[in-house]
């Protein structure tokens, strides 16, 4: 399969933006020179975006868009090939009662479950921008990231070799909080390199910042820039294993970073909020926030994803409400 997205070689962005003599110091100066974030103002802006009232045709469009942008996820120790097959079936045909329901963008699993997912997808496996469903694998000692670099790279290569289209890596939050930006940067660069496929292409790299552990918005902004400079195709909020996971203000902030990166370079980076988005109402707030911050063109699978599991059914219930005109119930959507 081919991905429309062409990845840059590792660290090339940093060299381009920060100059050829890329050092820990130049990286630090850049990150520390970023404009600060006032938390109250950021949260107010997010709350304001959350009051948009999305009705009728806009709501129908938003609900379908949410499905098309969903990385339907299962990341449990108890995951089995059977569970993954069931997830894939749900992703391909979310609402058996309504064949007009779009497919999800991807299924997101642990690396060892990638073959099961690819197998279950069969001919439907491919680029979500083309209406197919891709396979994302979490890697790099997900969710804690507490392992040596060789282990993280082996984890990544294994998932890529298994056919994963996307790698969702975690950054080393400990290193980041210790101010060791160079280590975080080099690990992302190395993982990006490990995403290289035999054919020379790259698996799509999503860099999970685990914003709930970075705590401050200034840190989120720095980590976002760091990940982009190191070669991230996507910046992703959370593993889903830490509270708080995705929040609207954090996602807004990350969207502001990719908007600014686009202003600076003309290149579009993706954003993936993950974890904690369970209702259509919440998800629509994210769609609004994307459209009003980065722009509508970001509402495509290669630029925005929801990392979610239970969200899908709530969206389906809302879809059913729109098509039938009455409220539906949980027995009318499938569990996976």
């Amino acid at each position: 399969m081919t991905m429309q997205h062409t990845a840059l070689a590792p660290a090339e962005r940093a060299v381009r933006v920060l100059g050829g003599d890329l050092t820990e110091r130049s990286l630090r100066l850049h990150l520390e020179g970023l404009s600060g974030v006032d938390a109250v103002g950021l949260e107010q802006r997010a709350a304001g975006l959350g009051t948009r009232s999305i009705k009728t045709s806009s709501k129908a469009w938003a609900l379908d868009t949410i499905i098309k942008l969903t990385d339907l996820t299962t990341l449990e120790g108890a995951d089995t090939p059977g569970k993954v097959r069931s997830l894939v079936a749900k992703g391909l045909n979310p609402d058996p009662s309504d064949p007009s329901t779009p497919r999800v963008a991807a299924v997101c699993v642990y690396g060892d479950m990638v073959p099961a997912a690819i197998d279950a997808l069969g001919a439907a496996h491919g680029d979500p921008d083309a209406g197919l469903v891709s396979v994302a694998a979490v890697a790099t000692a997900f969710p804690s990231g507490r392992a040596s670099l060789p282990v993280k790279l082996a984890d990544t290569r294994d998932a890529v070799a298994n056919g994963a289209d996307d790698i969702d890596m975690v950054i080393d939050r400990g290193a980041f909080l210790a101010g060791d930006y160079g280590t975080v940067f080099e690990q992302i660069v190395a993982v990006k390199e490990a995403c290289r496929r035999d054919d020379g292409g790259f698996a799509h790299l999503k860099v999970i910042l685990e914003t709930g552990e970075l705590t401050t918005y200034d840190n989120v902004r720095r980590a976002s820039w760091l990940a982009i400079l190191a070669g991230a195709d996507f910046i992703k909020t959370s593993t889903g294993k830490v509270t708080p996971a995705a929040t609207l203000p954090v996602t807004l902030l990350m969207l502001e970073v990719v908007r600014d990166w686009y202003r600076l370079t003309g290149e579009r980076i993706g954003v993936k909020p993950a974890g904690g988005i369970r209702s259509s109402k919440d998800a629509i707030k994210y769609v609004v926030t994307v459209a009003e911050t980065a722009g509508e063109q970001w509402l495509q699978p290669h630029l925005f994803r929801f990392g979610a599991s239970s969200l899908l059914n709530d969206v389906l219930l809302q879809r059913q409400k729109i098509s039938t005109g009455h409220y539906s119930g949980p027995d009318y959507v499938t569990i996976d």
Binding site: R52, I54, K55, S57, S58, K59, W61, A62, E296, L299
Partner: peptide, 9 residues
């Protein structure tokens, strides 16, 4: 359609 032309509410 443009999503940003939100339907009347």
């Amino acid at each position: 359609m443009s999503f940003l032309e939100y339907a009347p509410a």
